[in-house]
Amino acid sequence: MVAASIAGSGPRPPGSAAPAVAGEVMDLRGLRDVEFGDSEAELTDRGMLRTEVDACGPTLTGPGAVSPIFVDDRLVLLWVDDQVSTPEGITVGTPVDQVWASYPSVTELRAPQGTYRFDGLLARTGDRAYLFLHDGRTVRKTVAGYAEWARRLFDEGYGPC
């Protein structure tokens, strides 16, 4: 399995507006009452984790689709939908140039040629990172968590389903 780390928070350049986000905010610690490193049992006991027949794996309770990725029973990544943003306002649909403006030390990752995978931008801070998968124009998927697992997710092409 692959996990991701979230990184690269910093001040927003003057004049750059974040998209309006009506959902939740995910930072490098996690989301709401969910932190990277929590166990499946802890999240289940707190009522934060649910499994549904129609889902492709466990999801977190609350608005939007948030797919946790566990390695050795510990939360290492969160794969989120467009109702979740970073503190800088980056979410699905955000222009790629806004990611570069918000995370100046971002690393560009190229998907293997001949695949249907998205290119990526890895914004790393310490052992955590955000992984923004994009189509060259806009962010299409957002993943956050431990940097090592985010990079492995990108390299191996693993997803929550």
Rank of each mutant, 00 (worst) to 15 (best):
R152I: 04
Q113T: 14
G114E: 09
V21K: 08
A18E: 02
R110D: 12
G136I: 07
Q98M: 15
A150C: 07
P14Y: 07
C161R: 12
G57V: 00
V139W: 10
E148Q: 10
F118P: 09
D119W: 07
G15H: 05
R29H: 11
A4L: 10
Q113F: 13
T86M: 03
L43T: 04
A129Y: 04
A144G: 04
A41T: 08
V71E: 10
A65H: 13
E24H: 02
G93H: 00
G136L: 03
G37V: 07
A129K: 10
P68L: 08
T51L: 15
L49W: 06
G120E: 05
Q113N: 09
G57L: 03
E148D: 13
R124T: 11
E40C: 09
D82K: 15
V92D: 01
T59H: 14
Q98F: 12
G120F: 00
L109G: 11
F118T: 06
V92P: 04
A18Q: 00
C56L: 15
T86D: 05
T115Q: 03
D81P: 05
F70L: 08
P160T: 07
S102R: 10
D45A: 15
A123S: 06
L60C: 02
V53C: 12
G114R: 05
G15D: 05
R50F: 11
A20I: 12
H134Y: 02
M48W: 13
R32K: 10
G126E: 05
E42A: 04
G145A: 00
D54Y: 11
S16E: 15
C161Y: 14
S105A: 11
V53E: 12
G93Q: 02
A4D: 13
W149D: 10
W79N: 09
T91D: 08
L75I: 02
D54S: 13
R29F: 10
P160F: 14
V139Q: 02
V76H: 06
D82Y: 06
C56P: 13
L49V: 12
L31M: 00
G159K: 11
F70A: 04
D73H: 00
A111H: 08
R128Y: 10
Y158E: 14
P160L: 13
R124M: 06
L31F: 03
P87R: 07
F70Y: 03
L131H: 00
V34N: 01
D54E: 12
T94G: 13
H134I: 01
A129V: 04
F132A: 09
P104K: 03
L31D: 04
F70K: 00
L131F: 01
P14G: 01
A144K: 07
R124I: 08
E88A: 13
A22V: 05
V21C: 11
P68D: 01
L121M: 01
Q83R: 13
G157A: 04
G120Y: 01
A18P: 09
E52R: 09
K141S: 13
D82R: 15
D155E: 14
D45C: 10
L131C: 03
